[in-house]
């Protein structure tokens, strides 16, 4: 299981900070919906393909894969529009809606493929920083994402172990009954594990009180250290 949709490349798009790409995505989607006309939408499509394939040099398979994921849905939109509005109107309006959604999906795929998970988490932390008023600590979100990612393989491994143990005792390994019988010991084990992990984190100071980080005062230098200009001559 590859744990990211990120595609590493050395390109200006990859170097662009994640927040700028997300901003472009947000503004672009608003523009596409407000100025919904063929030139704008087709221009958007061309721009996305140019940026994604040309500048960022993503493999076409990344974009094709995302497009295929929504293909059903796009086809359904077109069919419904043709059924409701007739051929001419339906193809015009429906086609516009389909291409517009395709542009949005592809643009989001480009952003996802060119931003590291850590960068996106940093953006999420920044976006969540106003929530500090409500007592949310943005840094905790990074911790949460890291914890969840760490839990994914642990879960699979524990589930396999329990299933093996039950198969060894002759229990069923398939079907909803087996699922329920595996799920209970699995959940209890994992809840215990989470509790232990939290105690370990607390022991290392994770439960420090939520105060704003005080900027450390620069150590006062005596007279003038060699090579560093003293603040007051």
């Amino acid at each position: 299981m590859t744990l990211a949709l990120y595609v590493p490349r050395a390109s200006p798009v990859h170097r662009a900070p994640a927040w700028s790409e997300l901003l472009v995505l947000a503004v672009g989607s608003v523009v596409l919906f407000v100025l919904s006309s063929w030139p704008v939408v087709l221009g958007g499509l061309a721009a996305v393909l140019l940026v994604g394939l040309g500048v960022a040099r993503l493999p076409a398979a990344v974009l094709v894969g995302q497009a295929r994921a929504v293909a059903w849905f796009l086809a359904a939109v077109l069919v419904v529009h043709v059924l409701v509005d007739g051929w001419r109107e339906g193809l015009h309006d429906g086609g516009l809606a389909v291409v517009r959604l395709l542009v949005l999906v592809l643009a989001a795929a480009v952003v996802t493929a060119t931003c590291r998970v850590s960068e996106m988490v940093a953006v999420v932390e920044t976006v969540c920083s106003p929530l500090q008023v409500l007592g949310v600590r943005p840094a905790r979100i990074g911790l949460l994402v890291a914890l969840a990612l760490r839990f994914v393989p642990v879960l699979g491994e524990r589930a396999a172990r329990i299933r093996e143990a039950q198969a060894a005792r002759g229990g069923a390994t398939r079907g909803p009954r087996a699922l329920a019988r595996t799920a209970v010991p699995l959940l209890v084990q994992l809840l215990v594990l989470a509790h232990t992990l939290a105690e370990a984190l607390d022991a290392r100071g994770a439960d420090a009180p939520a105060e704003p980080v005080r900027r450390r005062r620069r150590p006062r230098r005596r007279a003038s250290a060699p090579g560093t200009p003293s603040p007051r001559p």
């Binding site: 590859t2 744990l3 949709l5 969840a148």
Partner: peptide
């Protein structure tokens, strides 16, 4: 909510390895 954050930051945690911001524009 954390799961949706995982989806949004581009982890393939939806069925069939889906994920990324694209799904939030989808049906």
């Amino acid at each position: 909510a954390l799961f949706l954050v995982l989806v949004a930051v581009g982890l393939p945690v939806l069925p069939g390895g889906g994920g990324g911001l694209a799904v939030f524009a989808g049906p």
